[in-house]
Design a protein around this nucleic acid. Structure first.
Length: 680
RNA sequence: GCGCCCGUAGCUCAGUUGGAUAGAGCGUCUGGCUACGAACCAGAAGGUCGGGUGUUCGAAUCACUCCGGGCGCACCA
């Protein structure tokens, strides 16, 4: 709604500037610094000042003089040195909100592929992985809210070094047969022997063993070889381990309400010869060449000119195919990226992996035809790869690959949705009993390392959050049964976690700290949830009193809105107040009308907030908006008793405000993937 | 060495792409539960936006430079 008016104002001024000055200017729209300045501010006069060689104030005045009225706009005035401030017709605005006149979402076409999570299936997920998944999932929800068809992919590197290391650990260090490992998965030995946790420790142990006994690195080579050949006990182990860990990851992420559409696996990239297809293409179009000299002799490489910025003096080219003929990770990634755009001329086969309780199915790639037809995966119009910023260099190489193949448009639509890492704060390390080297102790934070087993496991953190929330719930609602309390506590805990991971902008390093993450007060998920719960409570109480929600549409006429919100004109501008104090014949609206208006206005901006956040690629903007909205509501809630209001019209109005607020807040929370608990 | 990111209140962070008097949360201090339950609200203190130079009507935001911190730059993924 807000957005509609914004666009109308923009169009009107663009036309006005063209008519008046013959200039086709970009009209920028701002939110005024102060609410009393109106709803929209236009600095257009400043932009034109130089070109026209006139004072901004004069230009602004000229633009307003004799301008046609804009529907929905009550007043426009020149302010400051040349700002044009625009005030909405409040009653008209509220009426259209009531009528639900949100712009029908233009059907967006072109499927957007978002790839996120991508955890190596060799150990339990940690907080760094959570940031990836929550960021990715929230971005998906944002895109879907704007009407985009989205496909969520979670790439599984089930044939890589990390899986091999755990397999080697089981085989060589633990002397376990595939049957024994399968048994471990099926029937864990005790409380602390979840398979993914067990692998977490084994991975760290194996890595340490390699470090202490470099000669045993031959285990890794042997395992990788076996996996690639797809034969023998080691290969079997790899499948068992990776499949079990993938299931564990899916379960972990489901706790946060994160789902996927398809899991493309590296094993199928290999078996279905995706790479050979890409290799032929790369050779044919001369995107890579065979190096005959230097240290990369015998390799197929991509020249540095393809992916380095101009002026970058680092001229190392990137190896795509090793001298022993095997393909590097980047090579496989280029093939995968080509497939995502439907440019490879090949596709996976798929089988359903699991069905979520809501009926949605996740599919996984397989290497042979299947009886059940699968949805059409891949062939995206745009691709977002949610990967941390440390992989920027490799992502650049992948995009350069597309470009070198002549897929300019697809290269343009390949977006590295990067984010900074989650590290551990010094205090967090102390709490975890991690001994830091002197060097690390001086750092502002310590990097998480799966190889060292250094990190906070995702499920441990979630468990702790649930327990903390449960304490609160149990003390506030001792009357409810334990199971219900836990269900509520879980929703609160997950809301807290998602919000915590989302409130930082993408390129901020999160120095993880338990105290901050476990907080339920202030700028947190539970704060926002609480506002939504309070709004719902009002309607519950209303019902308990035997009253029903009014017929807003019939009771709240434009005149009623006008009485409750004020007109939107008649503000005393700061300078008018200064120069003509006491002479103003149009008194300002009473404070509470302005306040209602500000709250309503803020609540109506949910769509704009999401749109802005998508454009900026910044889910944190939506999180922040939700928090601000909750803040306004809490303030409103505290200041104006609603059910006790004696004036009929005002009560109806306040109830409608609450309803509108609740709807907008809940919609925004849904986009953040945060539930609204039944009580708090 | 080269490239990218960061430096804003005691702490953790925003700052709508160059706009009006720089904003939140936490922490500290003060006040508010017999209202729709205080996981809340109101108020106060707290800033040379790392330093400098420049660009222009206008800079936390852009350019250059210096200082401090982080991350990349594998025939690992």
């Amino acid at each position: 709604m807000f957005h509609n008016l914004e666009k109308q104002v923009e169009a009107a001024f663009r036309e006005r500037v063209r008519a008046r000055y013959g200039i086709d200017a970009e009209i920028t729209i701002e939110q005024p610094k102060q609410a009393s300045f109106g709803e929209i501010a236009l600095p257009v006069a400043f932009q034109l000042a130089k070109e026209l060689k006139q004072a901004p104030r004069k230009i602004a005045a000229d633009l307003l003089a004799g301008a046609a009225p804009i529907p929905g706009i009550a007043a426009m005035e020149v302010a400051g040195n040349g700002y044009i401030n625009v005030r909405f017709d409040r009653a008209a605005y509220a009426s259209s909100l009531l009528a639900g006149q949100t712009a029908p979402l233009p059907k967006q076409d072109g499927k957007i592929i978002v790839e996120h999570t991508n955890i190596n299936p060799n150990k339990a997920a940690h907080i760094g992985h959570l940031r990836n998944a929550v960021l990715g999932d929230t971005f998906v929800r944002m895109l879907r809210a704007l009407g985009h068809p989205v496909e969520v992919q979670n790439y599984i590197d089930n044939t890589g070094v990390q899986v091999a290391d755990v397999v080697a650990g089981f085989h060589y260090l633990g002397h376990k047969t595939p049957a024994e490992v399968a048994e471990l998965i099926a029937t864990p030995a005790g409380d602390n022997s979840r398979f993914d946790y067990l692998c977490w420790d084994l991975y760290a142990r194996t890595s340490q063993h390699y470090k202490d006994n470099p000669e045993s690195l031959s285990w890794r080579a042997a395992t990788l070889h076996a996996i690639e050949a797809g034969e023998g006990e080691l290969a079997e182990l790899a499948h068992i381990v990776a499949d079990a860990i993938v299931n564990a990851h899916l379960a972990t992420m489901l706790r946060l309400n994160i789902q996927y559409d398809v899991l493309p696996r590296e094993s199928e990239i290999l078996h279905l010869k995706f790479w050979s297809a890409a290799f032929e293409l790369l050779k044919e179009r001369k995107a890579i060449y065979f190096e005959t000299e230097g240290r990369n002799a015998g390799c197929w490489v991509m020249p540095s000119s393809a992916f380095r910025a101009e002026g970058d003096e680092n001229e190392d080219s990137k190896v795509i195919v090793r001298s022993n003929g095997t393909v590097t990770y980047v090579g496989k990634d280029i093939a995968y990226q080509l497939w995502k755009f439907g440019l490879l001329g090949k596709d996976f086969f798929y089988r359903p992996l699991l069905r979520y309780t809501d009926g949605h199915e996740v599919w996984v790639s397989v290497d042979e035809p299947q009886p059940r037809p699968a949805p059409a995966f891949g062939k995206g119009a745009a691709v977002y790869n949610v990967i941390d910023v440390r992989q920027s260099y490799l992502q650049d190489v992948v995009v350069a690959g597309l470009r070198a193949l002549g897929f300019e448009r697809e290269a343009e639509k390949s977006i590295h949705f990067s984010y900074e890492m989650v590290a551990l704060s010094p205090r967090c390390c102390v709490e975890l009993g991690i001994e830091l080297s002197e060097e690390d102790a001086r750092r502002p934070y310590v990097e998480v390392s799966g190889r060292k087993g250094l990190g906070v496991k995702a499920d441990d953190l979630m468990d702790r959050l649930v327990e903390t929330a449960l304490n609160e719930v149990a003390s506030r609602h001792p009357e409810d049964n334990a199971a219900a309390q836990r269900a509520i506590a879980t929703e609160i805990a997950m809301g807290a976690l998602r919000y915590f991971l989302l409130k930082f902008t993408r390129n901020t390093v999160i120095a993880f700290d338990f105290q901050e993450a476990l907080s339920f007060e202030g700028e947190t998920g539970p704060y926002v949830q609480y506002a939504a719960v309070r709004a719902r409570n009002i309607f519950r109480k209303l019902e308990e009193r035997g009253e029903s929600e009014p017929e807003y549409a019939t009771e709240l006429t434009a005149e009623a809105f006008s009485r409750q919100l004020g007109a939107g004109v008649g503000h005393v501008s700061p300078e008018a107040a200064g120069s003509a104090k006491g002479h103003g014949d149009a008194p300002a609206n009473p404070a509470n009308k302005d306040e209602f208006w500000q709250i309503l206005l803020a609540a109506s901006k949910a769509d704009s907030a999401v749109e802005r956040a998508v454009t900026a690629g910044e889910p944190a903007h939506v999180a922040r908006y939700a928090f601000q909205l909750a803040q306004s509501f809490n303030n409103f809630y505290h200041q104006y008793p609603i059910l006790a209001e004696s004036d009929r019209e005002k009560k109806t109005f306040l109830l409608w405000m609450t309803r509108f607020f609740a709807d907008q807040l809940e919609r925004t929370l849904a986009i953040l993937g945060i539930a609204v608990p039944a009580y708090m």
